[in-house]
Design a protein around this nucleic acid. Structure first.
Lengths: 154, 154
DNA sequence: TTTTTAGTTCGGTTTTTTATGAACTAAATG
DNA sequence: CATTTAGTTCATAAAAAACCGAACTAAAAA
């Protein structure tokens, strides 16, 4: 595959990933910026490069970058003697990713347990089902800790 | 806690859960219907009861119910000699829930691997990071199978 | 001090989503 | 066959989200 072919395919993938993150609740432009920073070989993009590459307005870029920083997905570096900020994918460590995932599960567990606590009949069909889900999710939390430990061994 | 107190707290929880599913990408009314079917002691609601309970239009109910069925979150039963449909929470089995979760992870893995395959430098900072994520997610897939097996033992 | 650079903020427009009521349908009932 | 019931569909109103350009700001450069 030639370099141009690869770049063409990468740019197509940026769009696909944009749509993916769009479905995950990111706004379209934020999704495409994230796609850009994940896919392309270039790893740092200045504000203007992003604006240029994705053909978006400066205000849209400014907003989307703010959101992505807030969501802990990107960060920027600066270079001495250069006023620009260079944005890059934030490389979270595996532990952090696992902890974030655990947190989400824990939040869901809290309201599932709240539902059960308010049930008149703890043996009703729904109660039993929700209890099963609580067990499953608790089990997943334990296994996530194992993944964390496992990761350290590598 | 008296019965009325519980019902009051349950109705509050329906709203909270509605907001939760809203954030998960469900439309507001669909989230509240799902909350209703999860939280209340009553386990089957007719179309009109849902309309009445949540104070929504019939068309909104019709649409949201269609979406929830499509997402495999609810189902309905019928009673001989009664034309109405009674909607209830769909009680998926644990295996199914795990499989669904695995499928999502697998979809993400596919595009992460696609990103790596298109990288000019497999040792670049982003390549290494994305590879780490691929490993983590693959590890999670294995552990999800363990959860499945574990669930059977109970 | 003036100008340039690197963005940010604001106001408004476009687009999308959500929700509604009214008209409609298909099956069951009388 | 006429009516009622249990919803569905459609056109549209209302609200929210996304996006843009123009004006603005703060820091650096000239």
């Amino acid at each position: 595959m030639t370099s141009e072919e690869r770049i063409k395919k990468q740019k197509e993938l940026v769009e696909i990933i944009g749509i993916h993150f769009d479905k995950e609740g990111f706004q379209p432009i934020a999704g495409r910026i994230l796609g850009l920073l994940m896919v392309m070989d270039k790893e740092q993009y200045s504000f203007d490069e992003i604006v240029e590459e994705l053909q978006i307005s400066k205000s849209s870029a400014s907003n989307a970058l703010k959101i992505l920083e807030l969501k802990n997905s990107i960060e920027y570096i600066t270079i001495p003697g250069d006023r620009k900020r260079y944005f890059q994918l934030k490389k979270l460590d595996v532990d952090q990713v696992i902890e974030d995932h655990k947190k989400k599960i824990e939040e869901t567990l809290i309201f599932l347990e709240k539902i059960i606590s308010l049930k008149a009949d703890k043996n009703s069909s729904n109660s039993v089902f929700i209890s099963k889900m609580v067990h499953l999710m608790s089990d997943m939390l334990i296994r996530l800790d194992e993944s964390k430990y496992h990761g350290k061994q590598l």
